[in-house]
Amino acid sequence: MSIKLRIALPILAALAAPVFAADYPEKTIRLYHGFGPGGNADTVARIVAEEMSQGLGQPVVVESKPGAGGTVASDFISKADPDGYSLQLMVGGHSVAAALYNELPYDAKEDFTFISTIGKFPFFAATQAGAFDDMADLVAQAKEKPGSIKIGHAGVGSTQHLSGELLGLLSGAEFLHIPYKGGAAASTALLGGEVDLMIDAGTSTRGQAEAGTFDILGVTSGERWDDATDVPTISETVAEGYDVLSWTGLGGPAGLSDDVVATLSAEMARVMALPSVQEKITALGAKPSASTPEEFRTLVETQIGVWTTVVKDAGVEKR
C-alpha cells in the first residue's frame, strides 16, 4: 500500500462513515417554514425552536421562505439533504396545496419525512352578533335566497376558503364567497358588515366573540372542541360529516435516517410535554398534540384526500 493511500484511506473511511445518532445534532439545525414572519407558522416555529435548541444542545434557527402558499418552502425542503439539519415547520396548508396545485415540483407525501404534529386546531364559524339565531337559521336563509349569504375568507385556495366551500357542498346551500387578503382583512369586513360569515381560527374569532361583537355559531371539528364545548359542531347542526382540523407539525425531507427521526421524535415528545410550550400553543388556539411519525403521515394523507374532493366538487380553479 502506497503512503498516499495509507493516508487517504482513513480519511475516505471517515468521510463515508454514517452519521451516528449519538453525533446528531453536531451543528446548527435550520427550521424552515413557508410563511411570512409573525404568522402562525412563524410563531409556532419560534416557540418550538427555542426549546429544541436547549434540548438538542445545538442552535435551532427559524428561517422563513414564504411564497406560493407555502409551496416554495416545501419544494426547498423536499430537495434538501436528508441529514436532519434542514427541517420544516409544516402546516395544514401542505395538504391543501397538494389538492389545489396542478403541478407541484414535489410529491406532498413521498418527498417528506413526517416527524410529529405539534398542534391541531379547528376553525370557528363566526357572524356579527345577533345576525343569525344559529347555524340552521343561517343555512336556511342561504337556501331561501341562494348567494345572499356572503362568506369572507382569507384568500382563494386557503383552508378557510375551502372550509366555506365544504360547508356549501355538505349543507346544500349556495353561498357567495368573497376573497380577502388574509384573515385579518376578512375579520375587518365582518366587523363592518360587508360579509355575513367567516370561518377562521379561534385567535381571530373567539376574542371578538368574548367582546360580544361576533357570535360563534359552530366549530369545524368533527367532535365538539375541548375548551369550547358549548359551541355545536357544524356537523351536528347543518352539514353531517363536516370535519375540518388544521395543524402544525415538524417534518423534513424524505430519507431521514431512523436514528435522526428517533432523536427528533423523542425531543418533540419532550418539548410538547413542557407546560410553557403547551400554554403558548393553547394561547394560539390549538390543542398541543405530539404524535408518532405514522399518525402524522396518516393525517396528511387523509386530508389530501378530503381537499382533493372539495376542490373538484366545488369547482375551485386549480393552479
Partner: peptide
C-alpha cells in the same frame, strides 16, 4: 386575489 390564478408568474417565487 379574486380567482387565485397566476399572472406572469415565471417561477414559484413570483407567485
Amino acid at each position: 386575489i379574486s380567482s387565485g390564478a397566476y399572472r406572469f408568474v415565471l417561477i414559484p417565487e413570483m407567485a
